[in-house]
Design a protein around this nucleic acid. Structure first.
Lengths: 353, 353
DNA sequence: CTGAAAGCGCTTACAG
DNA sequence: CTGAAAGCGCTTACAG
């Protein structure tokens, strides 16, 4: 009965892993040369390179990424902090991040910051350099004080915000022009003849809420239209909160003839709830959304909304981060992407016109 | 002018990282003891443990995960293969995976298998043990031949399928009962009085397509209802393909009075396209979806559909995988989760009744 | 319960 | 262009 050698701690009878040593042996060169042939081919003569490549093929060698990373003092990963991984709004942004990152040889780690058990301290724990070479946060609510260490030159791995950002922090971010989006929405409604315009806002304290609210207010002001508290509803970007806003709208004595919702989801909730009461859009009220998620054009009615380039938001954020990681470039600015008004069927001239 | 020591390759003037050595020094013990105090506290005396813990606090030490992983011959990560990260259908499944996995101390790597540049060979490259300790694939189209190495006992890191699976492969999977879902849909329509029932199927060759199609056929057969080729439309789960099916339905001389769509998205596309032609659901045709994505209950009309426990699908898959990784348990079976019919407003008795 | 020592698999400055 | 050697930061079998 053969006695199997213990190849590795905890693993018995393991097909021995092929290492760079085995390749070196097979190619008749040193491990240093094998390593160079792989990562800096130009430093190696053609002949040697070919021998090594052949040895790699014949042995079936694959680089051990962990060892390589340890030696190079990096992790080879970037970490993305997402407020809610289950929220489909983020999916295209995440895809953008992953796409841009995979192409550059990094892996992407996703962490759900709103998870039970994900207290701020635990999140901060993740933010140390042994887990990732850099961070992208889609969550603007990360406390700014400890984040400042992640500024370029701060000695910690860089962090960039995407979509949301921490107000008052000087960390770089990639975002869309939220104010401009709100202006486009309001101006579109006004152009249709609306004078009484309401708004369903996002959750309190969120930068997207603030900027879209501000854009709405400014436009209304500039056009000398009323800004009435009872026409401004508090939501949280969710379908449910849009439906709740509709209930409040229904109870109003004097109703706005058009409502601009700070997210498509709230617009759907709003329209859906109205339809339960027999009212329809845009006959009884015009509705504009924000985001242009896929379903918007297939909703009933197809939703007029503000288009966000979500995939691009992700790739831009990833590129910004990677350039910081690799070039250690300290001078990086914010990037603001433009939005676009998409006119569909949920808006029309007000009934009385 | 001071000369800064080069602490590390490629990094000048780096605040020196705190290592286990520093903690050992501060605590007056060996590095072995520090390591034990952290990962197997029971192997260390109370007094020593406290000294070490205090030293960790005072030095601000954080474990270098890469080094630990290299030494322990693991990666500490699991990799999830997603056909399309941008597709919101997956988001809750991914959240489930992440949630279950983070709790157990693993990181989660997401890879988009439908990315340009993501040819099968590149995917297989990812499937080697130096990148992850195990894999979850949401993509059933991975070629089965090379996957067999990932079977329990196959010498490669384990792989489990979630949601989709590779037909004919004996790799474990977590999925829902697709046939049963289709049966529930058909039976519901029949109970309402429908006799002419159509189906919008998913993409060819997909296991979800096949099983849902089979469930539909079987139910129709059992109830002695017609199965007509021109009432079975080919789709691909997308909104767009649902809209295309609606166009075909409109051109039919004899139309089914109810249509069961193999995804909610196709149902939305179908209903939306009909509405463009002035037809409405359920007055002109009843529609059932599949998935119960969040928007389903806020669609107009709220969509009758088959509910999938997507978050649970993710957590179950993660648990199955982790149990294989950790216990190296070779005996793992498939797990089939049950679905549920959610009756809302897109279905009603046929017009002629 | 504790420590000395080996070693996980790589990369790179240094010397030739 | 190439090799010998050091070392990234940890963990663990072994010996005491």
């Amino acid at each position: 009965m053969p006695v199997w050698p213990r190849c590795r701690p905890g693993k018995i009878l393991d097909r021995k892993t092929v290492t760079i040593q085995d390749v070196a042996l097979a190619a008749g060169v040193s491990t240093a040369t094998v390593s160079r042939a792989i990562s800096s081919p130009e430093k190696v003569s053609d002949a040697t390179r070919n021998t090594v490549l052949e040895a790699i093929r014949s042995t079936g060698y694959q680089v051990n990424v962990t060892a390589s990373n340890l030696r190079r003092q990096r992790t080879g990963a970037i970490m993305v902090l997402v407020p809610d991984l289950g929220n489909p709004f983020f999916s295209r942004i995440l895809a953008g991040i992953e796409n841009a990152t995979a192409a550059r040889g990094y892996s992407v780690l996703f962490v759900d910051t709103k998870q039970p058990g994900m207290e701020p301290e635990r999140i901060v724990m993740h933010l140390n350099g042994t887990r990732a070479d850099g961070f992208i946060s889609l969550d603007g609510a990360l406390a700014g004080d400890f984040l400042s260490r992640h500024r370029p030159g701060g000695g910690q791995p860089p962090l960039v915000f995407a979509c949301e950002w921490a107000d008052g922090s000087d960390l770089p971010h990639v975002a869309i022009n939220n104010q401009s989006g709100a202006c486009l929405a309001v101006q579109h409604l006004v152009a249709l003849g609306h004078r009484r315009i309401g708004h369903v806002a996002g959750p309190d304290g969120n930068v997207l809420t603030t900027t879209r609210l501000e854009g709405t207010r400014k436009s209304l002001n500039a056009l000398e239209l009323p800004i009435r508290d009872d026409w401004f509803f508090q939501g949280d970007f969710s379908l449910q909160s849009g439906a709740e806003a509709a209930e409040k709208w229904l109870k109003l004595k004097e109703r706005p003839s058009a409502v601009f919702c700070a997210s498509d989801q709230m617009a759907f909730g709003f329209i859906s709830q109205l339809s339960l009461h027999g009212l329809s859009v845009p006959q009884d009220v015009s509705v504009v959304g924000f985001d242009d998620i896929d379903i918007a054009r297939y909703y009933i009615p197809p939703l007029t909304t503000i288009h966000q380039p979500r995939h691009k938001l992700g790739t831009k954020a990833a590129e910004l981060l990677l350039s910081q990681i690799e070039k250690q470039s300290p001078a990086v600015g914010d990037e603001i992407l433009e939005v676009e008004l998409i006119v569909r069927k949920s808006t029309a001239a007000p009934a009385g016109n």
